[in-house]
Design a protein around this nucleic acid. Structure first.
Lengths: 139, 139
DNA sequence: CTGTATCCTAGCAGATACTG
DNA sequence: CAGTATCTGCTAGGATACAG
């Protein structure tokens, strides 16, 4: 696997920029692998919640509003499997388990910020577009 | 809604950075809305494919390997509804329809690049983590 | 406290056939 | 060419109950 690695431009503003990128060999398609992990309903919230330090199972359950015990367990297991969360068990009675975001997961933060930023700038536009579209369908 | 908008740091490298960000009011959780649109199996590929200029239905069908006609239509409709693709119908016989990414969609490129970049740097690590995890389960 | 185990449902997605 | 219609399976995710 060749290490073709140029600096990533700050932002795309025109179709010409897009062309240039594609010609330069950029394939801006994140692997399914990543979209599947962070695309889940709770994954990102869990990463964020455990980014500041160890969090216990019940803490997370209380913090993440609306999550079921089942999905909490499932998502934690997936994230642990992918190396995004570290799980630590203290063999006490009652049991104590802590989850903490790994450095790799913290770096995902940046990507989240870019997405969030995009959404902040365009959510109104998306909403308007949807209204228009739905109105056109109704007519 | 207050416009609390500071420059976004290039990358997070430590928990302290994460702390600082959260304290600064950043909520790095992209709305479900965005993850639901781009999280789909074909959405990103379609945006990329139509980023360089107008693309016809059949062109896309040939280009995107493995997509069914049904999913192509469905995803195109969703993206059009969200204002990420512009659909143009030429009332000719036979009919001709073109799809083209909007400027808003082109900006999503940047976010894709960041995600792809993260994945490029860490996919090996994720794969190893999974192997380890699965091996531990087997034992 | 930290989970499993079951059952259930809605929606994503594939396959196939039909149409203006 | 550019779709729609229908049937079907699969999996994410919720509700609830149980367990070490």
């Amino acid at each position: 696997m060749s290490q073709r690695h140029t600096a990533v431009p700050a932002e795309l503003r025109s179709r010409a920029d897009a062309d240039a990128l594609i010609d330069a060999g950029y394939c801006p398609i994140p692997p399914r692998e990543i979209l599947d992990t962070i695309g889940g309903k709770w994954a990102i919230q869990l990463i964020v919640a455990s980014a500041r330090g160890p969090m216990r199972f019940t803490e997370l359950e209380r913090l993440i509003e609306g999550i079921s015990r089942r999905m909490l367990t499932l998502t934690l297991r997936h994230l642990e499997r992918d190396g995004l969360l570290k799980r630590t068990v203290y063999p006490t009675v009652p049991p104590k388990v802590e989850y903490e975001a790994t450095p790799m997961a913290l770096e995902l933060y940046e990507a989240m910020l870019v997405l969030t930023n995009w959404s902040r700038r365009h959510s109104a536009c998306v909403a308007r577009s949807r209204e228009d579209y739905d109105a056109r369908q109704a007519s």
